Simulated scan of single mutants.
Amino acid sequence: MLVIRPIEQRDFTALKQFAIESGHGFTSLPVNDELLQKKLDHSIASFASRPAGKGECLYFFVAEDSDTGEVIGTCAIDAAVGLSAPFYNYLLGKQVHSSSRLGIYNVVDTLTLTNDYTGVSELCTLFLRESARHGLNGRLLSKSRFLFLAEFSELFDHRILAEMRGVSDDKGNSPFWCWLQEHFFSMDFPTVDYLTGIGQKGFIADLMPKYPIYVNLLSKEAKSVIGLTHDNTRPALRMLEEEGFSWRGYVDIFDAGPSVECELSQIRSVRASRKLKVHVADREVPHGYTCLLSNIHFADFRALIADVAVNEEKEQVVLSEEVALLLKVADGDTVRLVEI
């Protein structure tokens, strides 16, 4: 059974392999041992001491096969982006050019550099190994974070953001970046992607155009990918849209992938989740519901998908011994769950 838990030092090798396999455009997993270790240390420190409120905390999780011990995926929540280093996006907007005297009225699309998401909480670093992309594994990896958000909402912003990977080819070439590179930069997309991943973002403020970009001046190829996602990212976007996330015109400054957002309280799995007392069955659990469940522990957080029975009268959920053990709960404890 696949179980979600906080990342530990022993997961470094798997995390590095994920960084290699994720390819170009996956900025939050740079192929750099020092930066990966820094992220791992940041998460371990965040889980080690629960803060009183929202801060610059990083909560990294991994998906572990309870039968083999193999770690096959990862995901994370950044509690507040843009506080120590600027967090940039383009906002797709409009400008009107008109002349009543000449009878001309033109509306043009623009891209304006913003820091509008400063302080917002971000869902990030969702990666599942290709061999594990089946069944409910991707759904568990993505949606488990919503139970953590629901249980510890005071640690996060009321707005939740997710940046979707934009269009690029197998060699890391981004049509949107190719236009920016030609006119403002002298670096290819993989280099820019890597520098951003390791935190070297000073070049953005130095070289990025300061004024709105008129979209009609972009190349046909660059215009065609604004707001579109990478093929590998579409399943993740669909799951977020199921949860109530929507695109409000913000795109990544390098590959023009969409940034989607939702109010924390309006995320479907947050809103629909509930807490029930645990009863551990001494025999097979009667047929009931397939649910996403988590314990309500902070540092020892666990989440999984399992078939459970619910006794509405007693406000009780019936778990098998195996599920209770993996969730680190016993009779009388509380779990949070939402039906899949």
Rank of each mutant, 00 (worst) to 15 (best):
A52W: 07
S294L: 05
P51G: 11
F156L: 03
L326E: 10
F185E: 06
E241A: 07
R5T: 07
V96Q: 12
T196S: 14
D206G: 04
K54W: 06
N106H: 10
T110M: 03
N115S: 12
V215W: 02
L36K: 08
S49H: 14
P212F: 07
G82Q: 09
S246I: 03
M187F: 10
G138W: 04
Y250N: 11
T13R: 15
V120L: 06
C178K: 14
V329F: 03
V308A: 03
K223C: 11
T125K: 09
R248E: 15
D11H: 14
S46R: 05
A85I: 12
A63P: 01
I20V: 15
G244Q: 00
I20Y: 13
K143H: 13
H97G: 08
T68A: 07
G25C: 06
D11M: 04
V278G: 01
N32P: 01
A150G: 06
F146D: 00
D300F: 08
R139H: 12
D333W: 07
R302P: 02
L304Q: 05
V323Y: 00
A299Q: 14
L92W: 04
L240E: 00
G69I: 11
G244F: 00
G249M: 05
M1R: 11
E163P: 07
V71M: 09
F18P: 00
S66A: 15
Y105K: 11
A85T: 13
E163A: 06
N115K: 15
A19V: 05
A52F: 10
H158N: 13
V335F: 02
V167M: 05
L240W: 00
H297F: 10
L141A: 12
M239V: 06
L325E: 14
D307R: 14
T290E: 12
Q17I: 07
Q17Y: 09
F203D: 06
E122I: 06
N32S: 13
S174A: 09
V278A: 04
L218H: 02
P258L: 00
Q266S: 15
H287D: 12
Y214A: 11
V120E: 07
N32L: 03
T229C: 14
I340F: 12
F185W: 10
Q95Y: 05
V107T: 15
K39F: 11
F18A: 02
F185M: 10
I340Q: 09
Q200P: 04
M1Q: 08
S131C: 12
L207H: 10
E263V: 02
S121D: 09
S49P: 04
E241I: 06
R234F: 10
D252W: 02
Y211K: 14
R101I: 14
Y194K: 05
S131M: 09
S142Y: 04
A162I: 05
P86V: 04
N106W: 04
G166H: 00
K38W: 11
A52G: 15
Y214F: 13
F301P: 01
T334Y: 13
C291Q: 02
I213A: 03
D331Q: 15
Q181L: 02
I204G: 04
R302M: 05
K201I: 13
I44Y: 07
G73Q: 00
V270F: 00
M208P: 03
A150V: 04
D282I: 11
L36P: 05
V251S: 01
N137G: 05
F156I: 01
H24Q: 09
P235D: 03
D300N: 14
